[in-house]
Design a binder for these strands. Structure first.
Lengths: 347, 347
DNA sequence: GTGAAAGCGCTAACAC
DNA sequence: GTGTTAGCGCTTTCAC
């Protein structure tokens, strides 16, 4: 394969148009101080030579790149890729490029090399799209200062740290309240891994809703999977042993809810009559489960979009200090979607 | 928020270590021609000042950035995000950064601005991760030359163009042969949109396998959805009207297969006894469908990995012409996974 | 309005 | 071994 070798530079355009590079620069930057004549002549030459300014050279001298760095993990999963989708869309809209880094594990990583690699490429800001798991936010406690504006997704809000997240707690509360409304009283929970902040919040929501209603929320009613359907299957079977009177399950995500539906059917339990089920996250496929799955719709794409919006605001306030920026925690409220798996026809 | 403002430059390191910038440059580039003494002194200063070389400045002078551009679409879907996962992992392994661009539609886009935006950031190569849909490869016919090495995913192989793709045709053939082996003889197909190359290949595989076996493959046996479960539901219902004797369905993907299982159950058709079903793509959830779904496992992640490997090979051959590179089409062979939805107990 | 000079942070090519 | 010079492609500053 042969490649269009040399790129046209501003110098060549200048020479060809019989002006200085400075004038060309003014033209491509829409500077007003260029005469109509010169401008159109230069534009012609640019057009004809196919000149495209080098962002790289620009970034070097301006010390900003109009690029944001994104640090993510688990792109093969539903949530992270949705979020990335939102990030790329919003970044494009606001005129920013996206430099992507995916790390292999949610908990084990070195921050410094990650930052270094992004910073050495002059990113103007960073979206930290790795969810809070275990102590993977501990670096925030060392009072480290960041090289550039940074926004964190999916974590416990903190004073002075910009955060965007879904409100897992309120989502869980509405899931469980809904089950209670359907007449369920012995409601189990198949949680995500307890190291995950999102799982913790969902557990807390489940507990709170039960307590509020004067219903039991004992530890034997709740067990953790690892978000996968396979883990949900095992978790559910153990729950049936330890909490046999269970009449409803709130599952930590739709994947685990799915396997639960399969097990129930195998054991000839009718859903929702014998066991009502609500999931979390709203997989696109969940309306086609058997029975169709009630769930909590969370907008992970919006998480990405809002994060980029906020980040760009932060970046702008660095460059134009007259635009102030106050770090805030943005919480997105999820929505209950009721389908067959939880609709009581019992009372 | 306050940011660690000024970055340390090679000049400051040089002054602080009492050497020239060239010597520092030699140290950070592991050049042998530096005395042990000087090297360790410089390294100390680097360490202590927290110096991190600017990739940007390097890219500018070396005219290469160790960054690859990725153009993708539909990140919210399963396949594209799997592929991106493979791309980021492999790029990281080979020491390349990833600049990501997601376009809004599979068919409608302008190539030139896409290239320009990547090229102006000096990417060393491009992964074109948008699948072939409609005439969205027509630009290849105009004999355009590319600014940098580029590799295409998921398209009809072409002379002289590097391509990585799953072999959809052979996957479809093995799916249908399997159904025939189970004793099915009237096999319908719920296809993806016919503008998609992948859908076309799967249709061709379905047809070929039927013809080979002397079974009918008429147009009333095949209908297109748009990959979504919702479309699969409608397509399947129409098929029941027009092809009532159908005893098996090969679905174009697992999502459509899922809704088909739901409809079958609603209509009291037993799967697989009355209707055997095989999907395509292997969603992680497919073992938990009711019944568990037989499908064709395609490794979309590997598509991304191989693409980056090849691309880097192409890039290297540009910089070291003694390493030749011959464009080739790499086909990944998918694998049949048999589960309950197709296992005959009829004969 | 326009241009010359300097320089962003780094390295290639050549001196010594 | 080490330093000097020049320059990657662009913009900032300050002349005119």
């Amino acid at each position: 394969m042969i490649y269009r070798s040399k790129r046209v530079t501003i110098k060549e355009v200048a020479r060809s148009a019989g002006v200085s590079t400075m004038t060309v620069s003014r033209v491509i930057n829409q500077h007003p101080d260029v005469s109509k004549d010169t401008r159109s002549r230069v534009l012609d030459v640019i057009q004809q030579m196919g000149f495209q300014p080098s962002s790289l050279a620009r970034s070097l001298i301006q010390q900003r790149s109009y690029t944001i760095g994104v640090i993510t993990a688990g792109l093969k999963y539903f949530g992270p890729s949705q979020t990335l989708n939102g990030i790329t869309v919003q970044a494009e809209t606001l005129g920013y490029g996206v430099l992507l880094k995916e790390i292999a594990q949610f908990e084990k990583f070195e921050i410094q090399p990650l930052f270094d690699s992004l910073i050495s490429r002059q990113v103007d800001g960073i979206v930290w799209a790795i969810p809070q798991v275990g102590s993977n936010r501990s670096f925030l406690d060392q009072g480290i200062s960041f090289p550039v504006p940074i926004i964190f997704l999916t974590m416990e809000p903190r004073e002075g740290i910009p955060v965007v997240s879904v409100d897992n707690y309120s989502g869980a509360v509405s899931a469980v309240r809904h089950l209670i409304d359907q007449g369920c009283t012995r409601i189990g929970h198949i949680a995500g891994p307890v190291e995950w902040w999102e799982a913790q919040q969902r557990i807390r929501g489940w507990e709170t809703a039960l307590r509020e209603a004067g219903l039991p929320a004992e530890s034997r009613q709740c067990v953790s999977g690892n978000w996968s359907s396979a883990s949900g299957e095992m978790a559910f079977q153990r729950r049936l042993d330890q909490f046999p009177e269970m009449d409803a399950v709130f599952a930590g995500n739709d994947q685990m809810a799915l396997s639960l539906l399969q097990v129930a059917s195998r054991m000839a339990m009718r859903v929702p009559q014998d066991l009502a089920v609500v999931g979390f996250d709203h997989l696109a496929e969940s309306p086609y489960f058997q029975p169709s799955l009630s769930t909590i719709r969370t907008d992970q794409k919006q998480v990405g979009e809002l994060a980029v919006q906020e980040l760009v605001r932060m970046i702008q306030s660095v460059w134009s200090p007259e635009i102030p920026y106050e770090p805030q925690a943005i919480m997105i409220h999820p929505e209950l979607v009721v389908r067959e798996s939880s609709l009581a026809n019992r009372r």
